[in-house]
């Protein structure tokens, strides 16, 4: 038997173990090659599909690279002004308390311009899920400093590296958020290996189940890469992330009540 015929025998519906969920639309993603957003979108779509809550879920997309997230997951979406997604989600969840409402925000959107909105939504304990994608840089505008940019990290607006005297300190907003009594589940995940993706998926599932149980706010930070902003290849980016991001942004669950 030739190799090709053997492969063709394996490729049939009975042997299918992994395919794109129907909740991911066929639109080609606009993200750069290797971008973590794609993996996170997929995981969220898979969980919504598996929980069978497509018709009860409303996503709120941010301003930033993931502004067009609504083109990829087949649910109802609201597109927020920069940083304001938690305000939209607050109203949506309060007006339709039986729905699953989540925001999807980057580090500029959530930790910089939308700092007030996220802190207060967390403090009120809104019954929503927040996905916070931290790649320590502004992607869409071309690689400028974010609040989460590491000390010494070179960006378009810190061309000599982030200098804390000049640019302020690197912000661990997830640790701040974990202190707020309104948050119930605060975790920091990643998505660079199959094991990490599986763990992330468990966290996403738990967060949406918290909504079912009306537990309050679940907050998932995903430490990700931005190969265009970091000026590295996707695989180099993962290595850079492990070496530089993980020691500072330690993975794990900060709070689970």
């Amino acid at each position: 038997m030739t190799a090709t015929t053997e492969i063709n025998k394996i490729i049939n519906e009975d042997n299918l173990v992994y395919k794109k969920t129907n909740l991911l639309l066929d639109n080609e993603m606009h993200y750069c090659p290797g971008c973590t957003h794609g993996v996170i979108h997929k995981v969220i779509a898979e969980v919504i599909d598996e929980m069978d809550i497509q018709n009860e879920t409303i996503g709120v997309s941010p301003v930033g690279c993931s502004v067009l997230a609504y083109n990829y997951i087949d649910i109802d979406w609201q597109e927020a002004a920069h940083g304001r997604a938690p305000a939209l989600a607050t109203a949506t969840s309060r007006l339709m308390p039986e729905k699953y409402v989540f925001t999807y925000q980057g580090d500029g959107d959530l930790a910089s311009i939308g700092c007030a909105e996220i802190i207060h939504a967390c403090n009120r304990g809104e019954n929503i899920v927040v996905f916070f994608v931290n790649n320590a840089i502004y992607g869409m505008t071309g690689g400028q400093m974010a609040p989460t940019t590491l000390e010494g990290q070179v960006t378009a607006t810190t061309p000599y590296g982030r200098n804390t005297a000049l640019n302020g300190h690197t912000m661990k907003i997830t640790e701040m958020i974990a202190l707020l009594p309104g948050t119930r589940y605060v975790t920091r995940q990643s998505a660079e290996t199959p094991a990490a993706v599986r763990k992330l998926k468990k966290a996403v599932r738990k967060a949406f189940e918290n909504t079912t149980e009306k537990k309050g706010l679940s907050f998932i930070e995903i430490v990700g890469t931005c190969s265009s902003g970091w000026k590295l290849t996707p695989t180099q980016s993962n290595e850079w992330m492990k070496e530089n991001m993980f020691p500072f942004y330690q993975l794990g669950t900060l709070k689970d009540e």
Binding site: Y18, K19, K20, T193, V197
Partner: peptide, 24 residues
């Protein structure tokens, strides 16, 4: 192809979800 064990690792990490995996 002979080395493939159908573990889905590639599918899981693919940001563009372009990989379908079969296993027997």
């Amino acid at each position: 192809p002979d080395a493939c064990i159908g573990c889905s690792s590639c599918g899981l990490v693919c940001p563009d979800t372009v990989i379908t995996v079969y296993r027997t």
